[in-house]
Write a protein that binds this DNA or RNA. Structure first.
Length: 342
RNA sequence: CCGCUCUUAGCUCAGCCUGGUAGAGCAGCCGACUGUAGAUCGGCUUGCCCCCCGUUCGAAUCGGGGAGAGCGGACCA
Protein backbone atom coordinates (compact mmCIF):
# COMPACT_ATOMS: atom_id res chain seq x y z
CA UNK A 1 0.00 0.00 0.00
CA UNK A 2 1.42 3.37 -0.96
CA UNK A 3 1.61 6.42 1.23
CA UNK A 4 -1.17 8.23 -0.55
CA UNK A 5 -3.57 5.35 0.02
CA UNK A 6 -2.59 5.04 3.66
CA UNK A 7 -3.12 8.74 4.13
CA UNK A 8 -6.51 8.49 2.47
CA UNK A 9 -7.57 5.68 4.78
CA UNK A 10 -6.35 7.49 7.85
CA UNK A 11 -7.96 10.81 7.11
CA UNK A 12 -11.23 9.87 5.42
CA UNK A 13 -14.32 10.93 7.36
CA UNK A 14 -12.27 13.03 9.76
CA UNK A 15 -12.67 16.66 10.66
CA UNK A 16 -9.08 17.89 10.82
CA UNK A 17 -5.47 16.77 10.50
CA UNK A 18 -2.68 18.68 12.24
CA UNK A 19 -0.83 18.75 9.99
CA UNK A 20 -1.12 17.03 6.63
CA UNK A 21 2.53 17.67 5.86
CA UNK A 22 3.60 16.08 9.11
CA UNK A 23 1.38 13.08 8.40
CA UNK A 24 2.94 12.49 5.01
CA UNK A 25 6.35 12.69 6.57
CA UNK A 26 5.38 10.34 9.39
CA UNK A 27 4.08 7.73 6.98
CA UNK A 28 7.52 7.40 5.48
CA UNK A 29 8.88 6.30 8.85
CA UNK A 30 8.67 2.77 10.23
CA UNK A 31 5.89 1.78 12.65
CA UNK A 32 4.00 5.02 13.12
CA UNK A 33 1.63 4.91 16.07
CA UNK A 34 -1.68 6.47 16.96
CA UNK A 35 -3.63 6.51 20.19
CA UNK A 36 -7.04 7.51 21.45
CA UNK A 37 -8.05 7.89 25.06
CA UNK A 38 -11.46 7.39 26.58
CA UNK A 39 -12.40 8.32 30.11
CA UNK A 40 -14.83 5.59 31.22
CA UNK A 41 -17.74 7.74 32.38
CA UNK A 42 -21.24 7.51 30.93
CA UNK A 43 -22.65 4.76 28.78
CA UNK A 44 -21.32 4.69 25.25
CA UNK A 45 -23.40 5.88 22.32
CA UNK A 46 -23.17 5.93 18.55
CA UNK A 47 -21.10 9.10 18.68
CA UNK A 48 -18.36 6.96 20.16
CA UNK A 49 -18.88 4.46 17.40
CA UNK A 50 -18.30 7.00 14.65
CA UNK A 51 -14.97 7.83 16.23
CA UNK A 52 -13.94 4.26 17.03
CA UNK A 53 -14.85 2.92 13.61
CA UNK A 54 -11.82 4.77 12.35
CA UNK A 55 -9.50 2.49 14.31
CA UNK A 56 -10.19 -0.14 11.67
CA UNK A 57 -8.92 2.30 9.05
CA UNK A 58 -5.79 2.95 11.07
CA UNK A 59 -5.08 -0.76 11.28
CA UNK A 60 -5.63 -1.12 7.54
CA UNK A 61 -3.17 1.72 7.02
CA UNK A 62 -0.67 -0.22 9.09
CA UNK A 63 -0.52 2.06 12.11
CA UNK A 64 0.13 0.76 15.62
CA UNK A 65 -3.08 1.52 17.45
CA UNK A 66 -3.37 2.02 21.19
CA UNK A 67 -6.55 2.64 23.12
CA UNK A 68 -6.13 4.23 26.51
CA UNK A 69 -8.87 3.53 29.00
CA UNK A 70 -8.32 6.70 31.00
CA UNK A 71 -9.69 5.51 34.30
CA UNK A 72 -8.07 8.19 36.43
CA UNK A 73 -9.38 10.86 34.10
CA UNK A 74 -12.92 9.61 34.58
CA UNK A 75 -12.62 10.45 38.25
CA UNK A 76 -10.53 13.59 37.90
CA UNK A 77 -13.18 15.23 35.74
CA UNK A 78 -15.50 16.34 38.51
CA UNK A 79 -15.77 12.76 39.73
CA UNK A 80 -17.95 11.83 36.78
CA UNK A 81 -17.19 8.24 37.68
CA UNK A 82 -17.02 7.38 41.40
CA UNK A 83 -13.64 6.01 42.33
CA UNK A 84 -15.10 2.65 43.28
CA UNK A 85 -16.65 2.18 39.84
CA UNK A 86 -13.54 2.88 37.80
CA UNK A 87 -12.65 -0.76 37.38
CA UNK A 88 -16.14 -1.86 36.35
CA UNK A 89 -16.52 0.99 33.90
CA UNK A 90 -13.08 0.40 32.45
CA UNK A 91 -14.03 -3.19 31.80
CA UNK A 92 -17.29 -2.13 30.18
CA UNK A 93 -15.53 0.45 28.00
CA UNK A 94 -12.91 -1.99 26.87
CA UNK A 95 -15.50 -4.57 25.90
CA UNK A 96 -17.66 -1.99 24.13
CA UNK A 97 -14.69 -0.63 22.21
CA UNK A 98 -13.60 -4.13 21.21
CA UNK A 99 -17.10 -4.84 19.97
CA UNK A 100 -17.13 -1.64 17.96
CA UNK A 101 -13.77 -2.41 16.40
CA UNK A 102 -14.98 -5.87 15.45
CA UNK A 103 -18.18 -4.40 14.04
CA UNK A 104 -16.02 -2.09 11.95
CA UNK A 105 -14.38 -5.10 10.40
CA UNK A 106 -11.07 -5.21 12.25
CA UNK A 107 -9.59 -7.54 14.84
CA UNK A 108 -9.63 -6.14 18.36
CA UNK A 109 -6.56 -8.26 19.19
CA UNK A 110 -4.58 -6.00 16.88
CA UNK A 111 -5.19 -3.08 19.19
CA UNK A 112 -3.23 -2.51 22.34
CA UNK A 113 -5.33 -1.56 25.33
CA UNK A 114 -3.86 0.17 28.34
CA UNK A 115 -5.43 1.55 31.49
CA UNK A 116 -4.35 4.92 32.81
CA UNK A 117 -3.56 3.58 36.26
CA UNK A 118 -1.06 1.16 34.68
CA UNK A 119 1.42 3.96 33.98
CA UNK A 120 0.09 7.30 35.20
CA UNK A 121 1.08 6.47 38.76
CA UNK A 122 4.65 5.50 37.92
CA UNK A 123 7.38 7.77 39.13
CA UNK A 124 8.72 9.02 35.80
CA UNK A 125 5.21 9.98 34.78
CA UNK A 126 4.30 11.75 38.00
CA UNK A 127 7.58 13.60 38.12
CA UNK A 128 7.03 14.82 34.59
CA UNK A 129 3.46 15.78 35.53
CA UNK A 130 4.68 17.91 38.41
CA UNK A 131 7.05 19.66 36.07
CA UNK A 132 4.21 20.41 33.69
CA UNK A 133 2.10 21.66 36.61
CA UNK A 134 4.91 23.97 37.60
CA UNK A 135 5.15 25.34 34.12
CA UNK A 136 1.54 25.83 33.08
CA UNK A 137 -0.79 28.63 34.12
CA UNK A 138 -4.24 27.90 35.47
CA UNK A 139 -5.92 29.89 32.73
CA UNK A 140 -3.95 28.08 30.02
CA UNK A 141 -5.00 24.69 31.33
CA UNK A 142 -8.58 25.81 31.82
CA UNK A 143 -8.81 27.09 28.30
CA UNK A 144 -7.31 23.94 26.84
CA UNK A 145 -9.74 21.69 28.65
CA UNK A 146 -12.85 23.83 28.44
CA UNK A 147 -14.54 21.66 25.81
CA UNK A 148 -13.73 18.42 27.56
CA UNK A 149 -13.66 18.94 31.29
CA UNK A 150 -16.97 19.61 32.99
CA UNK A 151 -17.31 23.30 33.68
CA UNK A 152 -18.79 24.41 36.96
CA UNK A 153 -18.99 27.34 39.31
CA UNK A 154 -16.55 25.67 41.67
CA UNK A 155 -14.10 23.80 39.50
CA UNK A 156 -11.79 21.27 41.15
CA UNK A 157 -8.05 21.01 40.68
CA UNK A 158 -8.65 17.59 39.14
CA UNK A 159 -9.89 19.20 35.97
CA UNK A 160 -6.59 21.02 35.54
CA UNK A 161 -4.50 17.94 36.25
CA UNK A 162 -6.72 16.10 33.77
CA UNK A 163 -5.71 18.41 30.96
CA UNK A 164 -2.00 18.17 31.64
CA UNK A 165 -2.16 14.42 32.13
CA UNK A 166 -3.87 13.96 28.80
CA UNK A 167 -1.14 15.96 27.17
CA UNK A 168 1.49 13.91 28.92
CA UNK A 169 -0.24 10.65 27.98
CA UNK A 170 0.69 11.23 24.36
CA UNK A 171 4.36 11.24 25.25
CA UNK A 172 4.08 8.49 27.84
CA UNK A 173 2.42 6.16 25.36
CA UNK A 174 4.95 7.18 22.76
CA UNK A 175 2.24 7.96 20.24
CA UNK A 176 3.05 9.79 17.06
CA UNK A 177 -0.55 10.81 16.50
CA UNK A 178 -3.13 11.85 19.06
CA UNK A 179 -6.58 10.95 17.83
CA UNK A 180 -9.95 11.99 19.24
CA UNK A 181 -13.11 13.96 18.68
CA UNK A 182 -12.72 17.57 17.63
CA UNK A 183 -13.67 18.56 21.18
CA UNK A 184 -10.22 17.33 22.21
CA UNK A 185 -8.55 19.93 20.04
CA UNK A 186 -7.77 22.35 22.83
CA UNK A 187 -5.96 19.76 24.91
CA UNK A 188 -3.87 18.39 22.07
CA UNK A 189 -2.94 21.86 20.89
CA UNK A 190 -1.65 22.40 24.42
CA UNK A 191 0.25 19.14 24.07
CA UNK A 192 1.84 20.32 20.85
CA UNK A 193 2.86 23.48 22.64
CA UNK A 194 4.25 22.17 25.91
CA UNK A 195 5.56 18.69 25.15
CA UNK A 196 8.43 19.93 22.97
CA UNK A 197 9.37 22.39 25.71
CA UNK A 198 9.87 19.40 27.97
CA UNK A 199 11.92 17.35 25.60
CA UNK A 200 9.16 15.28 24.02
CA UNK A 201 8.11 14.97 20.41
CA UNK A 202 5.43 17.25 19.09
CA UNK A 203 2.46 14.99 18.36
CA UNK A 204 0.38 15.07 15.22
CA UNK A 205 -3.34 15.37 15.78
CA UNK A 206 -6.27 13.81 14.04
CA UNK A 207 -9.79 14.79 14.92
CA UNK A 208 -13.09 13.08 14.25
CA UNK A 209 -16.31 15.02 13.77
CA UNK A 210 -18.76 15.13 16.65
CA UNK A 211 -22.38 14.26 16.13
CA UNK A 212 -25.08 16.64 17.25
CA UNK A 213 -27.62 15.46 19.73
CA UNK A 214 -31.01 14.45 18.43
CA UNK A 215 -32.65 17.37 20.18
CA UNK A 216 -30.52 19.94 18.41
CA UNK A 217 -27.67 20.57 20.83
CA UNK A 218 -24.55 18.54 21.42
CA UNK A 219 -24.87 14.88 22.15
CA UNK A 220 -24.41 14.14 25.80
CA UNK A 221 -23.90 10.88 27.58
CA UNK A 222 -25.81 12.18 30.55
CA UNK A 223 -28.86 13.32 28.60
CA UNK A 224 -30.86 10.18 28.02
CA UNK A 225 -32.71 11.10 24.85
CA UNK A 226 -29.96 13.08 23.18
CA UNK A 227 -28.29 10.16 21.46
CA UNK A 228 -28.68 6.53 20.49
CA UNK A 229 -27.01 4.26 23.00
CA UNK A 230 -25.21 1.15 21.89
CA UNK A 231 -27.52 -0.84 24.12
CA UNK A 232 -30.73 0.51 22.59
CA UNK A 233 -32.98 -2.07 20.97
CA UNK A 234 -34.32 -1.46 17.44
CA UNK A 235 -37.59 -0.12 18.75
CA UNK A 236 -35.85 2.39 21.01
CA UNK A 237 -33.55 3.45 18.20
CA UNK A 238 -36.51 4.13 15.93
CA UNK A 239 -38.31 6.03 18.67
CA UNK A 240 -35.30 8.23 19.26
CA UNK A 241 -34.75 8.90 15.57
CA UNK A 242 -38.43 9.59 15.04
CA UNK A 243 -38.35 12.06 17.90
CA UNK A 244 -35.30 13.87 16.58
CA UNK A 245 -35.23 17.51 15.68
CA UNK A 246 -35.22 17.44 11.90
CA UNK A 247 -36.57 20.52 10.14
CA UNK A 248 -37.49 19.91 6.55
CA UNK A 249 -34.85 21.11 4.13
CA UNK A 250 -32.44 22.30 6.81
CA UNK A 251 -28.97 20.86 7.34
CA UNK A 252 -27.92 22.92 10.33
CA UNK A 253 -28.17 21.19 13.73
CA UNK A 254 -29.88 18.28 12.02
CA UNK A 255 -28.82 15.24 13.99
CA UNK A 256 -30.45 12.80 11.59
CA UNK A 257 -28.45 14.07 8.64
CA UNK A 258 -25.28 14.02 10.69
CA UNK A 259 -25.85 10.42 11.68
CA UNK A 260 -26.23 9.60 8.01
CA UNK A 261 -23.22 11.55 6.88
CA UNK A 262 -20.77 10.48 9.53
CA UNK A 263 -21.98 7.03 10.52
CA UNK A 264 -24.42 5.37 8.16
CA UNK A 265 -22.99 6.25 4.77
CA UNK A 266 -19.37 5.55 5.66
CA UNK A 267 -20.39 2.10 6.85
CA UNK A 268 -22.58 1.40 3.83
CA UNK A 269 -19.78 2.62 1.59
CA UNK A 270 -17.34 0.21 3.20
CA UNK A 271 -19.81 -2.65 2.83
CA UNK A 272 -20.61 -1.68 -0.75
CA UNK A 273 -24.28 -1.23 0.04
CA UNK A 274 -26.71 1.53 -0.74
CA UNK A 275 -29.25 3.34 1.40
CA UNK A 276 -32.81 2.37 0.60
CA UNK A 277 -35.71 4.52 1.70
CA UNK A 278 -39.10 2.91 1.47
CA UNK A 279 -41.68 5.51 0.66
CA UNK A 280 -45.40 5.45 -0.03
CA UNK A 281 -46.32 5.79 -3.70
CA UNK A 282 -48.15 9.04 -3.03
CA UNK A 283 -44.87 10.65 -1.97
CA UNK A 284 -42.86 9.29 -4.87
CA UNK A 285 -42.21 5.66 -4.01
CA UNK A 286 -39.00 4.01 -2.83
CA UNK A 287 -35.74 5.80 -3.43
CA UNK A 288 -32.13 4.61 -3.28
CA UNK A 289 -29.02 6.62 -2.47
CA UNK A 290 -25.44 5.57 -3.15
CA UNK A 291 -23.81 8.44 -1.35
CA UNK A 292 -24.65 11.09 1.21
CA UNK A 293 -24.22 14.11 -1.03
CA UNK A 294 -27.17 13.32 -3.25
CA UNK A 295 -29.36 12.53 -0.28
CA UNK A 296 -28.57 15.86 1.31
CA UNK A 297 -29.21 17.62 -1.99
CA UNK A 298 -32.65 16.04 -2.24
CA UNK A 299 -33.37 16.87 1.36
CA UNK A 300 -32.42 20.50 0.92
CA UNK A 301 -34.48 20.66 -2.27
CA UNK A 302 -37.49 19.43 -0.33
CA UNK A 303 -37.75 16.27 -2.35
CA UNK A 304 -37.04 14.04 0.60
CA UNK A 305 -39.34 14.35 3.58
CA UNK A 306 -38.00 13.98 7.13
CA UNK A 307 -40.53 11.32 8.04
CA UNK A 308 -39.51 9.05 5.19
CA UNK A 309 -35.89 9.70 6.01
CA UNK A 310 -36.30 8.92 9.69
CA UNK A 311 -37.86 5.53 9.12
CA UNK A 312 -34.99 4.22 7.03
CA UNK A 313 -32.37 5.88 9.22
CA UNK A 314 -33.68 4.31 12.40
CA UNK A 315 -33.78 0.85 10.90
CA UNK A 316 -30.31 1.12 9.45
CA UNK A 317 -28.76 2.39 12.66
CA UNK A 318 -30.42 -0.40 14.60
CA UNK A 319 -28.80 -2.89 12.20
CA UNK A 320 -25.45 -1.20 12.56
CA UNK A 321 -25.36 -1.43 16.33
CA UNK A 322 -26.95 -4.87 16.48
CA UNK A 323 -23.66 -6.80 16.82
CA UNK A 324 -22.48 -4.50 19.60
CA UNK A 325 -25.74 -4.77 21.41
CA UNK A 326 -25.62 -8.54 21.06
CA UNK A 327 -22.23 -8.56 22.74
CA UNK A 328 -23.73 -7.06 25.89
CA UNK A 329 -26.76 -9.29 25.89
CA UNK A 330 -24.45 -12.21 26.51
CA UNK A 331 -22.83 -10.37 29.40
CA UNK A 332 -25.42 -8.02 30.90
CA UNK A 333 -23.45 -7.89 34.14
CA UNK A 334 -20.83 -5.71 32.44
CA UNK A 335 -23.32 -2.88 32.18
CA UNK A 336 -25.00 -3.65 35.47
CA UNK A 337 -21.74 -3.47 37.36
CA UNK A 338 -20.62 -0.30 35.59
CA UNK A 339 -23.89 1.52 36.17
CA UNK A 340 -25.45 -0.12 39.24
CA UNK A 341 -28.01 2.61 39.82
CA UNK A 342 -29.57 2.50 36.37
C1' C B 1 -8.63 27.25 64.30
C1' C B 2 -12.54 31.25 63.96
C1' G B 3 -16.61 33.68 61.45
C1' C B 4 -20.37 34.27 57.70
C1' U B 5 -23.62 32.20 53.87
C1' C B 6 -26.08 28.24 51.54
C1' U B 7 -28.84 23.19 51.43
C1' U B 8 -36.74 23.08 48.96
C1' A B 9 -39.21 19.30 42.03
C1' G B 10 -34.45 16.41 37.15
C1' C B 11 -32.09 21.88 36.90
C1' U B 12 -32.17 27.28 38.60
C1' C B 13 -34.52 29.16 42.55
C1' A B 14 -38.94 31.71 45.44
C1' G B 15 -41.40 30.83 50.12
C1' C B 16 -38.81 31.30 56.04
C1' C B 17 -38.79 37.68 59.01
C1' U B 18 -45.01 37.77 60.39
C1' G B 19 -45.74 28.80 61.84
C1' G B 20 -51.57 26.57 59.14
C1' U B 21 -47.95 19.96 56.16
C1' A B 22 -45.07 23.90 49.00
C1' G B 23 -44.68 27.24 44.49
C1' A B 24 -42.47 29.55 39.74
C1' G B 25 -39.44 29.17 35.42
C1' C B 26 -36.97 25.62 32.59
C1' A B 27 -36.88 20.37 31.62
C1' G B 28 -40.05 16.04 31.09
C1' C B 29 -44.69 13.49 29.63
C1' C B 30 -49.56 13.59 26.99
C1' G B 31 -52.80 15.81 23.46
C1' A B 32 -53.94 19.62 19.11
C1' C B 33 -51.62 21.53 14.68
C1' U B 34 -48.15 20.47 10.86
C1' G B 35 -47.09 13.86 6.34
C1' U B 36 -41.28 13.93 11.16
C1' A B 37 -39.26 16.63 14.89
C1' G B 38 -39.19 21.69 16.45
C1' A B 39 -41.99 26.23 17.22
C1' U B 40 -47.00 27.44 18.99
C1' C B 41 -51.38 26.36 21.87
C1' G B 42 -53.96 23.18 25.71
C1' G B 43 -53.26 19.80 29.74
C1' C B 44 -50.44 16.85 33.30
C1' U B 45 -46.73 14.55 36.47
C1' U B 46 -42.84 15.03 40.08
C1' G B 47 -40.80 16.51 46.30
C1' C B 48 -37.64 12.07 53.04
C1' C B 49 -38.56 21.13 51.98
C1' C B 50 -30.24 17.91 54.17
C1' C B 51 -30.61 14.83 59.03
C1' C B 52 -31.86 14.44 64.39
C1' C B 53 -34.01 16.56 68.75
C1' G B 54 -37.10 20.31 70.86
C1' U B 55 -41.19 24.33 71.21
C1' U B 56 -46.29 24.21 69.37
C1' C B 57 -52.94 21.99 68.46
C1' G B 58 -49.80 22.50 64.07
C1' A B 59 -42.76 23.38 61.77
C1' A B 60 -39.89 24.06 55.07
C1' U B 61 -40.70 28.33 58.41
C1' C B 62 -39.04 29.17 65.42
C1' G B 63 -34.88 27.03 69.03
C1' G B 64 -30.75 23.46 69.80
C1' G B 65 -27.41 19.81 67.79
C1' G B 66 -25.23 17.52 63.47
C1' A B 67 -23.79 16.76 58.16
C1' G B 68 -22.40 18.59 53.35
C1' A B 69 -21.02 22.74 50.23
C1' G B 70 -19.24 27.80 49.38
C1' C B 71 -16.81 32.30 50.99
C1' G B 72 -13.76 35.07 54.22
C1' G B 73 -10.40 35.79 58.26
C1' A B 74 -6.63 34.25 61.38
C1' C B 75 -2.18 31.49 62.06
C1' C B 76 2.74 32.14 59.34
C1' A B 77 7.47 35.83 66.02
Amino acid sequence: MDTAERKRLITRHTEEVVTEEELEELLSEPNPSIYIGYAPTGEMHIGHFTTIRKLADFLRADLDVTVLIADLHAHLDDEKSPFDLLEARSEYYRTAIEAMVEAAGARSEDIEFVNGTEFELDQPYTLELYRLLADTTISRAQRAGSEVVRQSENPKLGGLAYTLMQSLDVAALDADIAYGGIDQRGIYMLAREILPEHGHDKPLCLFAPLLSGLSGGKMSASEAGSGVRLSDDPETVSEKINGAYCPQGEVEDNGVLEYLQHLVFPILEEAGESFVIERPEQYGGDIVYEEYGSLEADFVAGELHPQDLKGATGETIAEIIAPIRARFETEPELLDRAYPDE
